[in-house]
Structures are given as C-alpha cells and as structure tokens.
Write a protein that binds this DNA or RNA. Structure first.
Length: 331
DNA sequence: GGTAGACCTGGACGC
DNA sequence: GCGTCCAGGTCTACC
C-alpha cells in the first residue's frame, strides 16, 4: 500500500491476534482478519472519505515463520507496537481519527491494572492473558451490529453486515449514521435483508445523526449502570439483551446479555437443568461473584467453548465459522 | 408484572 | 424445486 504509515504504541500485555479475535464482531463486515498473516484490515470512515487500514503487530526479530506454536507467536508479539498501513495519504486530523478508532476497537485504553484485577478475580484467564474484548471503531456501529444480532442466527448477522456495507456504506465502509438515516426502509429490507429491523435501524440512525445519543454521558464513569441500562431500553429495537450487550461494548461488564446461547452454555458447560428461565437465572447467579468483571468471565467461558469446537479464534475464517456457528452445531 | 403472538430471514427437512 | 417448520430478541396487546 502506498499511503500513510503509522506506528501505535500499545499496553505491555497487548497481543493483536488474541485481543482482536476475542468477540464475534471481528468477523463482521467490514472487519477482516487474515488468519495466515495475522493482519486485521477494514475501511475506516474519515473526513476525506473512507480509507483502508491494514494493521499488524510485527513479532520480535520478525521471526513469525519460525514460531510454530500459538503461544510462542503470542509471546513474541506481546506489547510490540502496531504498524498501520493506510491505502492513501491522510492529513493530521485523519491520522488522529485513525489512531482513535483503532484504540477504541482494541480497547487500548484498558491498562494492565484493570486486567490484573480481573485475573485476580478469575485466575482462569491469567495464563492466556485474555481480558480485552474487541468492539467497533464507533458506538454507532456497535449499536447497529447489536440490532443485527438480535432474533437471528449468526450467518444472517454476518450477511446483514456485509449487505449494509455493500449497499449503503461508502465504498464498502460501514455506513455512517447520516447515510443510514437517509436510507429507505424498503432498501434495508429488500437489499440488506434486515427484515423488520428496517425502521428500527433508521430511527436509531436518525437519533445518532441528530445528536440525541449522548455518548459522553454513556462513557462517563459517574453515570450509574442502572440509569444507562434503563435509557438503552428506551431506544428502538433495543431490549434487555441488546442493552446489556451495548453496556459491555461501552466497557461496563457487570451485566450479562443472556440469550438462548446462554441457556445452551448453562446446560452443556455448567450442567444446569430446568426450564430456560430457570437456567437463565442460574447463569446470572453463577457469574455474580465476578462483580464488575462478570461479563468477561462469562464470555471467555463461552469463547473457550467455541474454540474447542472450531480451533483457536486467530485461525478462524468467516465463511467456515458462519457454517460452524449454527445453533445445531453448538448444541 | 407476566404472557402470547407477530415480526422476518435463512436453513433444515420432507416430499 | 417447492412448501413447511423452526430459531432467534423485541414489541405490542392483553390479562
């Protein structure tokens, strides 16, 4: 790529492959993880138009080919700066935006102290170092992706995001709130296959575009979890599950976004029995002791189950994962 | 406050 | 190839 190149410093424990491939959204368009080269790429929306960024974390001594185990590759990459290659030249403002969006996706603001506290509470993840959870470069994209994940199986979520980028996004980028707000419901339904979510997505986009969503209030640590949870549920298409999921995407991990997948987890991994409602309650209770890190404990258990089925997440390829992650295969 | 049914799509299945 | 059934979270109407 001939264009701007950036170097981004990361926390000492950060591993791109582990921390990017930590939540399902890394598999959703326009995100792309190249499993062979450990390169994360996507289009980012910038003031001068979309730009493609390819992000790598070169390993110590550049000796990736000689390192045969996942653990040794992770160790060699740990804490090393990210190298970002953009497909065009960026101005200073755009460079700052790219840095900010990358920091949001990989949660570079989460320091080692926070994760050390999590590992003290739940030592199962100390060895692997898991703790960060991938998210989108913007809150808006996280919210829309959450809506596309509701009441649908994973392959359809993947398809909806591909179509949103292809049909509505500029040049294949994830569509902006302004663009989605101006899109017809019939386009979203007919061409993006979002079904009944069409009007809800447009209304959410209008709220973001009009500045009615106060992101600063949401990210302010002084804002109580209960108030935020209540507010999120007033948004169109956002119920209890989606609210809890958006909260974890905002960095609040005390609530669990429980769905049918959680019931599956409760039954098959935790050995719970009873009705679905009873199992949901037991799953909530089970993770209560992990307090403000409850979601991390819950999620990495679920993630470990997926990895036992499909191999280490760094090696996943979207098409293969789409067919592997159907409800029938996860039972 | 709790519950039933509608909302859509894509995949699985039977014929 | 066609029709039917089912999974999935939110919303609305109703009790």
């Amino acid at each position: 790529m001939a264009g701007t190149r950036l170097t981004i410093r990361v926390p000492a424990d950060f591993v791109l492959a582990r921390d990017a491939c930590s939540y399902g959204y890394f598999l959703l368009a326009p995100n792309h993880w190249e499993a062979d080269t450990w390169t994360f790429s996507r289009l980012l929306e910038l003031e001068g138009g979309p730009a493609r960024v390819a992000i790598r974390q070169p390993e110590e001594n550049g000796a990736s080919a000689r390192r045969v185990t996942l653990a040794s590759r992770r160790r060699a990459a740990r804490g090393r700066p990210l190298r970002v290659a953009c497909d065009r030249t960026l101005n200073a403002s755009e460079r700052a935006s790219v840095r900010g969006q990358i920091a949001r996706m990989f949660r570079l603001d989460e320091d080692e102290g926070t994760l050390r506290a999590f590992h003290k509470l739940d030592p199962r993840w100390r060895r692997s170092g898991r703790g960060r959870l991938f998210r989108s470069p913007t809150l808006f994209e996280d919210v829309i992706k959450t809506v596309t994940s509701c009441n649908v199986q994973w392959p359809s979520t993947m398809h909806m995001n591909i179509r949103l980028c292809e049909v509505v996004g500029r040049g294949g980028a994830f569509p902006s709130a302004e663009k989605l707000a101006r899109t017809r419901a019939s386009t979203l339904r007919g061409r993006c296959r979002v079904g009944y979510r069409d009007k809800r997505i447009i209304e959410l986009s209008r709220m973001f575009a009009r500045g009615e969503i106060d992101e600063a209030w949401m990210t302010d640590t002084a804002t109580p979890d209960d108030e935020l949870f209540g507010f999120l549920q007033t948004l169109p298409g956002i119920g209890p599950y989606a609210s809890a999921n958006i909260m974890q995407l905002l960095g609040r991990h005390s609530r669990l976004p429980l769905d049918t997948e959680s019931v599956r987890h409760g039954k098959s991994v935790l050995g719970f029995t009873g009705t679905d409602a009873q199992i949901m309650k037991r799953v909530h209770k089970h993770f209560e002791p992990f307090g403000e890190h409850a979601f991390r404990s819950y999620w990495f258990e679920v993630w470990e189950f997926y990895e036992r089925k499909a191999g280490a997440s760094e090696t996943w390829r979207p098409k293969e994962v789409a067919s592997a992650f159907t409800a029938s295969n996860l039972k």
